[in-house]
Design a protein around this nucleic acid. Sequence first.
RNA 1: GCUCUCAUCGUCUAAUGGCUAGGACGCCUCCCUUUCACGGAGGAAAUCGGAGUUCGAUCCUCCGUGGGAGCACCA
Length: 449
Amino acid sequence: MEVRVRMAPSPTGFLHVGTARTALFNWLFAKKNGGKLILRIEDTDLARSTPEFEKDIVEQLEWLGITWNEGPIRQSERLDLYETHLKRLLDEKKAYWCTCTKDELEAKRKEMLESGIAPRYDGACREKHLGQDSKGVIRFVMPEHAIGFTDLIRGHIEFKGDMIGDIVIAKSLKEPLYNFAVVVDDEDMKITHVIRGEDGIANTPKQLALQAALGFRHPHYAHLPLILDASRAKMSKRNAATALAEYRAAGYLPEAMMNFLALIGWHPEDDKEIMVPEEIAKIFTLERVQKGGGAFSLEKLNWMNAHYLRAMSDAAIAKRIGWEDSGKNRRIIALVKPRAETLNDFATHGAFLFDLPKYEPELLLWKDMAPGAAKASLEHVIALVEKGDAAGIPKLAEERGRGETFWPLRVALSGLKESPGPIEILDALGTDESLRRLHLAIGKLEKIS
RNA sequence: GCUCUCAUCGUCUAAUGGCUAGGACGCCUCCCUUUCACGGAGGAAAUCGGAGUUCGAUCCUCCGUGGGAGCACCA
């Protein structure tokens, strides 16, 4: 049987890194098994869903390199389908109208909580046989027996029978709710494997019961461990950037992000960590997915991004950051690359190459060097550069002292305490600009001598 | 409160019923180097606790502890 999996984000916010990771694992699973991936937009909550968020979801998935075979399919456009099944459930008395008010429910809930039992609907309207004109909501008659399933990652999971009350499956015939829409869609789209986050575990028995009542088959379930933040709680906007778009804007590469995300909760048999998506897809199995939640380590992401950056050609980087692919820009990129962690670093770390650096004159002094000595050093360098003999600088350094020569030169050109090598900067800057900066440095030294 | 779930270096994780529990990030040292990086070579760092099964348990079982998630007319 053909493997069919889905990613089912809800357009009520920007694409979350956790959602992206779930999408990625579905993509990997589909690829590994020669299956199909369906993008389903779960927008049954009309009040909270927006086209902007949907656009972000699609854009970020595309950026990551996740491709799908069907969709995006919007639940909001399939209302008739849900209504058909809703009516069937009602006709068969497997669902009923409920007119309990929110206040009543809240009071009962509080009461149950206080007496130490799990809050659940008491079934007050179950036997009232209310009609559609009652303007209530539709509840599903939850079976009393225990419901278990075998999770592909966690093994057998069982829920006690009387735990879950009659859940609301729709606000009206035209307003289905999450658990119901999911069940109808998973059946209709012939989903074989539901691969989702661990937070979906508690929904599984509800969906299983709904499937049984509707006469649907049960897909396989696999619940992925959660992505945790640095304090080991579910990653939230409070403590870290959660929107994929933020990482994109911060200059992370999609290939690095994908590789990094794949390694949260999954690990290859060997210890090879740097892998392109196609490589991972070849060896990906749910058996090797971890059960415990994994923290999102920005430090490791940074390392991985830097690693991918260093593997890219200067021309490719120029293209990514939107720089003209000129000889000068390539030299600048080559200079910044060993120190860059993100795409944005090229602009910030390379800024001194475009704009005249600002720095204190004292920075020009190597250790306890006197201003006059620094000035003399720079003058020697200027003489060489003016002759077009920059290649003679290393020899000069040997004669006059490496630190004494290179340090003032580097600072004069970059204004930085930490920077690429001075000869390389001189080359990237060009003779004219270099001489200009050297003279400016001498001016600064004269002021403090 | 109730339900479900998880537990190996600080972090992501590997492995095994029995050798020095492996790799990666981060950290430290050294080499390279005018500086900082990059690169190279080393190093410190972990099986939550208690019972049981067993010749032997980090691995299997139970209990405890700790963490996490879920308990909407959200998804």
